[in-house]
Amino acid sequence: MIHDAFLVAGKDLRLEWRSRVALNQVAPFALLVLVLFAFALDPDRGLLEKATPGLYWVAVLFSGLLALQRSFSIESADGNRDALRLSGLDPAGIFLGKVMAVGVQLLALEILLGIGVAVLYTTPITGWILLLVTAMVATVAIAAAGTLYGVVAAGLRVRETLLPLLLLPVLAPVLIGSTRAFEAALGGTPSEGWPWVGLMGVIAVLYIVAGVFGFGPLMEES
C-alpha cells in the first residue's frame, strides 16, 4: 500500500512538473490573490496586518482548489481512471499517493504565499514551531479532504462547480483552526493555538480513514 502510494505520488508530481501548470498559473494566481486583498483592505489602516492569518489561509484554500481541480482533470482525461483501476494498484495506495502529491503542491504554495505575506504585509512571527506544525497538519487535512471530494466530483461535466461546493464547507473548520493558530503564532500567545492543531488533526485522520476505505468503491464504478 505504501509502495503503491509513493508510485502514484511520484507519477502525479512528475506529470505536474512536466506540464508546469502549477508553476506558471496557480502560483501567480496565489500571489495575485494577496495583492487583491491589499487593494480590498486599505494597507495603511492596520486592517491588513490584523487580517493576515485569515487572508493567508483563504488564499491557500482558493489556490489549492485550483491545484486540486487541475490534478483531477489530468486524471479524467484519456481514460486514465480506467488505467489506474486496471493497474492492480491498491485503491488505498492510490488515494494516499494522490494525497501526498496534492500535499506537496500545497506545501509549495504555502511556502510561496508565506514569503509573499512576510514581504508584502510585513508580519512579525513569534511562534515558529506552532506555525510550522499548523501548516503541516492543515495541509494534510486539506489534501485528504480535497482528494476524497475531488474523486467524488471527478469525471463529471459539472466537476468545476461541484468541487468547491462540496469541499469549502467541509474545510471551514480547517480555515477557522489554521487562522486562529496562526494568529496565536503571529504575535499572540502560542499555547492558544494547540487545541486548534488537535482539531485539524482529527479532520485529517477522519478524511484519511474515509479515503482509504471509500476509495475502492468509488473506483469500481463505470
Binding site: 464547507p169 477557522i176 483552526g177 487545541p195 482539531l199
Partner: peptide, 11 residues
C-alpha cells in the same frame, strides 16, 4: 462533518 463544524464554531 456537522459535528466537527459544530465543535470548531463553538470554539
Amino acid at each position: 462533518n456537522v459535528m466537527i463544524v459544530r465543535k470548531s464554531v463553538d470554539w
